[in-house]
Simulated scan of single mutants.
Amino acid sequence: MKDQVVDIRDIFKARQTVSRNLKPTQLLRYESLSRLIGADIYIKHENHNPTASQKIRGAVNLAWELRRNGVTRIVTAANGASGLALACAARLFNMSALVVVPEKSPLSLTQPIQDQGAEVRASGIDFPESLRIARRMEENGDYYFVHPANEMQFIHGCATAALEMIEELPEADVAIGSVGMGGCIASTLAASSVLNPKLKVIGVQAESAPAAYLSWKTGALQRQESRTFSQELGMSKAFETPFSLYADSLADFVLLPEHRLYEGVALAAHHTRQMVDAAGGAPIMAAYLLRQKLRSKTVVLFMSSGVATADELEEAYTLSAFRSGKPEEL
């Protein structure tokens, strides 16, 4: 599949908007992780953003552009951090937001969105159906529909994280990020392809929700049932716009079984003292599994999300990796 072209000027323009509203996130080196993996390990702490995810960058850039063009009411669908990010950005720019979520969504998803002043409507048996319902609301003329993955201005905003990383650590050899909807990993590629073409970008996804991996592997958009516990990684399809950016550009793609996702959460707590979800911890686990290939390299792990549920943390923190700081050898 032919890559979609991103103009680097759009990313620098997005940084002007993002930097007016958000502070840069920390890029920290971790000695204990560096010893464990045998590489120089840095973490880009996107979990330190408001809403605890990288997606707030994209939401701020997108909402600002929509507001400038007269949009005052937006609707989207979400089963994770994108809904909260868009609700927060809408509030920032005095816009009304409606977020459609699957009918059995937990309070841990819906309450933070409502706390940002957005309306939450539980409709649809799963995320794809909620997405279709949200899109129909635009067709009725009530709202401007914001797709949670296929918005280039969202990707431009998310790319400001990679821009910060490349400027602060230009010697980085490898970057690893989680793939759910794909916008964050696509944004890293969008920035690095121009500013550091030698940077190898690696994606990591749940083995129980491998649609993006299968799409990358086959070169065509794929659907696959999601059975993972992770809200952020639990996509049953790959999305067109992010896929057009990572289809031919990822250096590698790692699939993690469920127990390895939990171990990633545990490792994040042990080594960085950060409370993150599976998407936030997965790059650590992927780096450990790739440690032979990463030896002596400078590696940046994007801790892109910290929206863990209580059940997720409880399961992860019972594992031996939480205390020992080392995954089980199978």
Rank of each mutant, 00 (worst) to 15 (best):
K2Y: 06
Q4C: 09
D7M: 09
D10P: 00
A14C: 08
N21M: 11
L27M: 05
S32K: 15
L33I: 01
I37L: 13
G38K: 13
I41A: 01
I43Y: 08
H45I: 00
I56V: 14
R57W: 13
A59C: 08
V60L: 14
A63T: 14
W64E: 05
E65V: 04
G70C: 10
G83A: 06
A87N: 10
M95Y: 10
L98E: 03
L98V: 10
P106H: 13
T110R: 07
Q111Y: 10
I113G: 00
A118S: 02
E119M: 15
I125H: 11
I125C: 06
D126W: 08
P128C: 07
I133M: 11
E139S: 09
G141Q: 12
V146H: 04
P148S: 10
F154M: 14
L163P: 00
D173L: 08
A175M: 12
G180D: 01
G180I: 03
G183E: 08
C184L: 11
T188H: 14
S193R: 13
N196H: 14
P197L: 03
K200Y: 03
G203S: 08
V204C: 15
Q205F: 04
E207H: 13
E207C: 09
E207I: 07
W216M: 12
W216I: 03
R223Q: 11
F229P: 05
E232G: 12
M235H: 14
A238R: 03
F239D: 01
P242C: 02
S244Y: 01
Y246A: 06
V254W: 04
E258A: 04
E263Y: 05
A266M: 05
L267W: 06
A269N: 02
Q274H: 02
A279Y: 01
A287P: 07
S296L: 07
K297M: 09
V300L: 03
F302P: 02
V307H: 08
A308D: 01
A310R: 14
A310T: 10
E329Q: 11
L330W: 13
